[in-house]
Write a protein that binds this DNA or RNA. Structure first.
Length: 442
RNA sequence: GGUCCCUUCGUCUAGCGGUUAGGAUAUCUGGUUUUCAUCCAGAAGAUCACGGGUUCGAAUCCCGUAGGGACCGCCA
């Protein structure tokens, strides 16, 4: 049996650090087991699902380098769900319910006030045929619940160990809505069976739900699924990660020019016992992946780590890697420019700051005009090379008796306008003699 | 209220009855003869949530308490 995992996002929002981690884990599990990874678009809720999000989800995955062997939309399988629905009905495992959402809400409040279980009371099970006809003649349409028979469900969770859930503490799940739309619990179980999914790896928020799904899968077929539930990530504030939380969406990081590998490196290490470090490649991440290193306790995700990883990554990029992107920033950026500047960048596109400094004619008025004037007098004629700066500053040192910070910092500020940046011996070669003279106002 | 889970340096974590409680990251110091970054060396940082029990011995096993998380929907 081929190991098969799936990622089943609902296209109702953007992918973020939390759900992309689940996708990555499933993908890595498939790749490390020579298996198959399926992208299942969970769009049975046609009202809330948007095509726009389907394409964004696919684009995010592609951008990150997470490929899939198969993809389909659940909305294309309504016929199959209907078929399975009939067979469950024949078995007497699903029953029609006529309560309105308001009535159910009222029941829950009553149960809460009474301090009892907030579980559906199965009163629809006791309805006589006549009562049912009564509701129908009122124009009510039934929604359908699955009758759970087991008292408890046990499974061995790859990450959490032996789990036993008391099914009587959970409501019989609604499988089909009043309008005939199948719900997640059902379509998910059917598709896992039909597509021969072997391993379901998902967030801890699905743990209780897994008990329900095992009961359902056993009614439909026979459960052979192996489950693993990982802890959810929390925001650095300690709050829960939200789909609506755009600051951690993959799209937002892409807009900030964060590299895919930085994101993958973070996701492959945070909340695990792996060292938090930049990985050389996605292949390295695959090679090092071990599902058991994933923690079961909810951890915080520090987005600062992402910036640090990104910085480290781009500082080693060759010119060829970023050539096309640099061209969009400024066509004048060549290999020499990139190599001189890259060590001081947080993102590739940040190089714009340095093309501004190198090519613009902004006038800089030095604080210590006398000193700078001396320096300019001693400035060597071109051509310049890597030794020029040393020779020049040695001459200035001799003449002015300045050294260290006193010597270098005013020069940097006078020639670039800022107090920090790439090595001056490289930078002056990029700026050039004429520009320095033109720029410095004495 | 019910069900399930979690709790070790700031943060992510290793630990499976005897460890100077280890690593990563962040922080600080020194060096790499300006800054930033990198790299190297070093330092500091954990009453192992709390209380009790078992044991010669507990971060580790058991019970309780507290705190945190998840779920309890005609969402996924």
């Amino acid at each position: 049996m081929t190991v098969t995992t799936r990622f089943a996002p609902s296209p109702t929002g953007l992918l973020h650090l939390g759900n992309i981690r689940t996708a990555l884990i499933n993908w890595l599990f498939a790749r490390t087991n020579n298996g198959k990874f399926i992208l299942r678009i969970d769009d049975t809720d046609t009202e809330r699902s948007k095509d726009e999000y389907v394409s964004k989800i696919k684009y995010d995955l592609e951008w990150l380098g997470i490929d899939y062997d198969e993809t389909f939309n659940q909305s294309s399988r309504f016929d199959v769900y209907k078929e399975r629905f009939e067979s469950l009905k024949d078995q007497g495992r699903i029953y029609p319910c006529y309560e309105t959402p308001e009535e159910l809400e009222r029941k829950r409040k009553l149960q809460l006030a009474a301090g009892g279980k907030q579980v559906y009371d199965r009163s629809a099970l006791k309805l006589s045929d006549q009562e049912k006809r009564g509701f129908e003649s009122e124009g009510r349409k039934p929604h359908w619940r699955f009758l759970m028979k087991s008292e408890s469900i046990k499974w061995n969770d790859i990450l959490k160990g032996d789990i036993e859930i008391d099914l009587t503490s959970l409501s019989d799940p609604v499988l089909f809505r009043e309008d005939g739309v199948p719900l997640y619990t059902f379509s998910s179980a059917v598709d896992d069976i039909d597509f021969n999914v072997t391993n379901v790896i998902r967030g801890d928020d699905h743990t209780s739900n897994t008990a329900v799904q095992i009961e359902l899968i056993n009614a439909l077929d026979k459960n052979n699924l192996i489950f693993a539930h990982h802890a959810l990530l929390k925001a650095s504030s300690g709050d829960k990660l939200s789909k609506r939380d755009n600051v951690i969406s993959i799209e937002s990081f892409r807009d900030l020019n964060i590299e895919p590998l930085a994101i993958l490196s973070l996701l492959a290490t945070i909340g695990t016992s792996n060292s938090i470090e930049l990985k050389d490649s996605i292949d390295q991440i695959i090679n090092e992946f071990k599902i058991k290193t994933i923690s079961t306790s909810p951890g915080r995700i520090e987005t600062d780590l992402l910036n640090a990883l990104n910085r480290k990554l781009i500082q080693n990029y060759d010119f060829d890697t970023v050539k096309d992107r640099l061209e969009k920033v400024d066509k004048k950026i060549d290999e020499k420019f990139w190599t001189a500047i890259r060590g001081n960048l947080n993102t590739v596109e940040e190089i714009k700051q340095w093309t501004d400094i190198v090519y613009d004619s902004k006038i800089i008025e030095p604080k210590d005009k006398e000193f700078i004037s001396t320096a300019i007098d001693l400035m060597p004629e071109e051509p310049w090379d890597d030794d020029t700066w040393d020779q020049w500053t040695s001459a200035i040192k001799e003449k002015t008796n300045r050294k260290g910070k006193e010597l270098f910092l005013p020069l940097r500020e006078a020639f670039t306008g800022v107090s920090q940046g790439p090595e001056m011996k490289k930078l002056i070669q990029l700026i050039g003699r004429d520009k320095i003279i033109e720029r410095v106002k004495l």
